[in-house]
Simulated scan of single mutants.
Amino acid sequence: MNSKKPSKISPLRNAIKLAACAVSLSTALASPAIAQHAVITIYHHVSDSTPRSTSLTAQELRTQLEYLRDNDFAVWPLDRVIEALKNQEPMPDKVAALTFDDAYESIYTTGWPMLKEFGYPMTLFVSTQPVDDEQSGYLTWPQIRKMADEGVIIANHMVYHPHMVDAQPGESDAGRLQRLREELLTAESRIEEQTGQSHKILAYPYGEYDLEILDMIESLGFTALAQNSGAVGYHSDFRALPRYPLAASFADIESASTKLNSLAFEVRHIDPVSPVTDSRRPAVTMQLAGDFNVSQLGCYANGQPMELEWLDREAVHFRIQPAEGQEFAMRRFNYICTAPKRGTNRYYWFSKFWTRSTPDNAD
């Protein structure tokens, strides 16, 4: 992905802007209500010399942090967000948690000092093998321990950063799950050994998982985070919480601010639950709930609107599938559904994540 701002507004962004103009802001000045939503961000590199697809510059990160500060966000540690949502505790109107994956060097040299300047907590997800191997471009254990000692949450990103849905040659599905279980617990033990922390929070490498992995995560008492966009709420699946990637073309504050202010739909039904598919345009049925006008609900694939096939409009139960010609070729992709909350300029946001088992190009 390149770093230049698109010359045209995408259909999804344009639809959001048009809907916002149509929504009354009369209640926006009311006293803040107790909320049941939060957003979790994901970053990798904080640099202008690393791959743009997983990077944002120091200035882009600073602009986002200034936005959080200037717009009355409560920036909480990730574990506090998770516990508050799981226990359905009252929360401030706008809550964010900031996470960084892969333990890259620029997180320590550029990202973390900036967050300390703003007084914001963060979570670092560590794949332990590159750190153990002292691989170039990654943090060292002494650096990670220093971060841990100063309050950074150090959490699990597996040992080898695997594609968790992929079996190794000749490996059975049971063998794959046993290998993943051992790797997960090995990484957790290594992090605890080096930092004294064991939060039992996993960030899926590449954001990939399947139903068997969800069951494994639950059985081991872990909470897990994915990489598809969306807000989190009381009714989220704590085996695969969404996070907003806010790098590359999503780093600009216009895009980031919409996402930082987003709300979580209550997903009352989704079929299939599994993200694994062989199709380049899979269909999904879902039922959503929230304080929104059904006529303003929109779903998008590759930024293009999808037709909602209503199964029960009153219950907001519908089926979506990209049209022919809107097929996906990549390994991972999302369908995004949004709707403005009544009386505000904030959006409910949900993405259905897919990972293809037979992609045209793996990454």
Rank of each mutant, 00 (worst) to 15 (best):
Y160P: 00
P32C: 07
R331M: 15
R280I: 04
A248I: 01
D237H: 08
R280L: 08
L288G: 10
L263T: 01
L56N: 12
M1Y: 13
I213C: 09
N293P: 03
N71I: 05
R181C: 04
Y209A: 09
R346W: 10
S172K: 01
A28F: 06
V273R: 13
V23F: 03
I253S: 12
A84L: 00
K17A: 14
H161V: 04
W141A: 14
Y108E: 01
T99E: 10
N71D: 14
F328V: 01
F265Y: 09
S229R: 04
G233Y: 05
R190D: 15
E188V: 02
P92S: 07
A30W: 10
D72C: 08
L139H: 05
T110P: 01
T41N: 12
W349C: 05
V95N: 12
D363M: 05
A96F: 10
D149F: 09
S24Y: 13
D291C: 06
V75D: 06
F328D: 15
S255N: 11
T41Y: 03
T358Q: 14
Y160C: 04
A256I: 02
R179P: 04
E327P: 04
S31Y: 09
L85P: 12
I40Q: 06
Q194C: 13
S257D: 10
N293F: 12
Q88C: 13
Q59D: 15
L220M: 06
L29V: 06
I154Q: 06
C299N: 06
W76F: 13
I213Y: 08
P77N: 03
D215P: 02
V75Y: 14
H269T: 01
L202T: 05
S49H: 11
A38Y: 02
Y348R: 04
T110I: 13
A15F: 14
L241M: 14
G175N: 03
F238C: 06
S257V: 04
F125G: 03
W354M: 02
F333L: 13
G111E: 04
L12Q: 13
R342G: 03
K86W: 06
V316K: 05
F353W: 11
E193F: 09
V316H: 01
S31N: 09
Y206R: 02
D149R: 06
Q59G: 05
Q321F: 02
L12V: 02
Q88R: 14
D79S: 10
A97L: 14
E212V: 00
A362E: 12
P142R: 05
M91F: 13
L18S: 11
V276Q: 07
L241I: 03
R181F: 00
K116Q: 15
A226E: 07
E171F: 12
I270Q: 11
V131R: 05
H44D: 09
Q135M: 15
